[in-house]
């Protein structure tokens, strides 16, 4: 794709137009065919759009995440040792018995996986161009073939920015969830999967007399809790979406929460846990936005505004009256 005939555009002209296209893309009003014509007409346009998108993602908090640890696949001859390492790691995953159901592991069909420790988060670019972000204490496995992309959230929480491509399936314990291109946040809650659809469509297959369903974003972001016996859909308002996705910015957001639930949420990120010693403290209503990486401001707020005593032991923060 080289520059077509016609006057050469300056980066500044292209930038102005790219901003409009990106605004339309974000607002869902973009005419994709017209956009492609514009982008393909001049490389300066394509660069300007990528630049605007990069800016948007940075400003929306994506730059906060860890630099990707896994490189793109390199299909040509010389593989790096890192690539070989990954292949070994994928095979090791299979040997570890994480995948049930008689999966054959040819080279192109092996599972890959990534995980985070408590308090860590990570962003990974997958070979299909999708991006997965792992919240604290999470593990994601995936396997791509020409006809299917399969994901498995083994623990924790994963945000998936899914590119177009082969059919994408998230395997739960019993149910399958088919995802379109789009943006999704998935959190494992025991045997259930809590899925937030931010863009695109999710289709939950039926099972054992339970009807399947389709969740889309026509009425706004929706979340669906998928368990073996049920799939419950709720519309998510802006505040709820903000709360669910706050971890992408290393934040934790409490709205209409109780101290008990807030502490439970905070403890996901902490190796040194917060323990409520006097149980009646659990029901105190709390709210606020805090950083996941440092509980001190939260404890400070609890201590001063709720008049709760915070003691620190080497392994825990203890809350008492």
């Amino acid at each position: 794709m080289r520059r077509s005939e016609g006057p050469v555009r300056t980066p500044a002209q292209a930038a102005t137009e790219a901003a409009t296209w990106l605004a339309q893309y974000r607002l869902g009003t973009i005419d994709e065919a017209a956009f492609r014509t514009w982008r393909d007409s001049d490389m300066a346009n394509a660069i300007a759009f990528a630049r605007a998108l990069a800016m948007w993602e940075r400003v929306s908090g994506d730059a906060n995440d860890v630099v990707p640890a896994i490189p793109f696949p390199m299909p040509y001859g010389a593989m790096t040792s890192r690539r070989n390492f990954l292949r070994t790691a994928a095979v090791a995953t299979v040997a570890g018995g994480i995948i049930a159901g008689g999966v054959t592991t040819t080279r192109a069909y092996a599972w890959s996986s990534a995980s985070t420790e408590v308090g860590e988060n990570k962003r990974i670019r997958l070979s299909d161009g999708s991006v997965a972000a792992l919240n604290t204490n999470s593990r994601l496995s995936w396997r791509f073939s020409a006809s299917e992309r399969t994901f498995w959230i083994e623990r924790g929480e994963v945000a998936l920015d899914l590119s177009a491509g082969a059919e994408a399936v998230v395997r739960g314990d019993d149910r399958l969830v088919f995802l379109s291109q789009g943006r999704f946040n998935m959190r494992r809650r025991d045997a259930a999967l809590d899925l937030l659809v931010l863009a695109g469509t999710a289709r939950v297959n039926g099972d054992k007399g339970v009807p399947g369903m389709i969740v889309d974003t026509r009425k706004g972001a929706s979340s669906v809790l998928i368990s073996q016996s049920d799939a419950v859909v709720r519309l998510a308002n802006a505040e709820q979406v903000d709360g669910i996705t706050a971890w992408r910015h290393n934040e934790i957001l409490f709205q209409d929460a109780t101290l008990g639930s807030a502490v439970e949420e905070y403890n996901r990120f902490l190796t040194r846990k917060i323990v409520i010693v006097d149980r009646e403290l659990s029901s105190i209503p709390v709210g606020g936005r805090f950083t996941t990486t440092d509980p001190d401001p939260f404890l400070q707020a609890v201590s001063t505004s709720l008049n709760v005593h915070v003691s620190r032991s080497p392994t825990a923060y203890l809350l008492t009256r």
């Binding site: 605004a23 339309q24 607002l27 605007a52 931010l198 009425k219 706004g220 979406v241």
Partner: peptide, 29 residues
């Protein structure tokens, strides 16, 4: 912040969708 529908944002701010689009484009630029 993800999850707002553009129509809702426009209604909330008392703007037309096209004004919303223009202001967002300007902000991006």
């Amino acid at each position: 912040v993800e999850g707002h529908s553009p129509k809702d944002i426009a209604a909330e701010l008392g703007l037309s969708l096209s004004t919303l689009e223009k202001r967002l484009a300007r902000a991006i630029h």
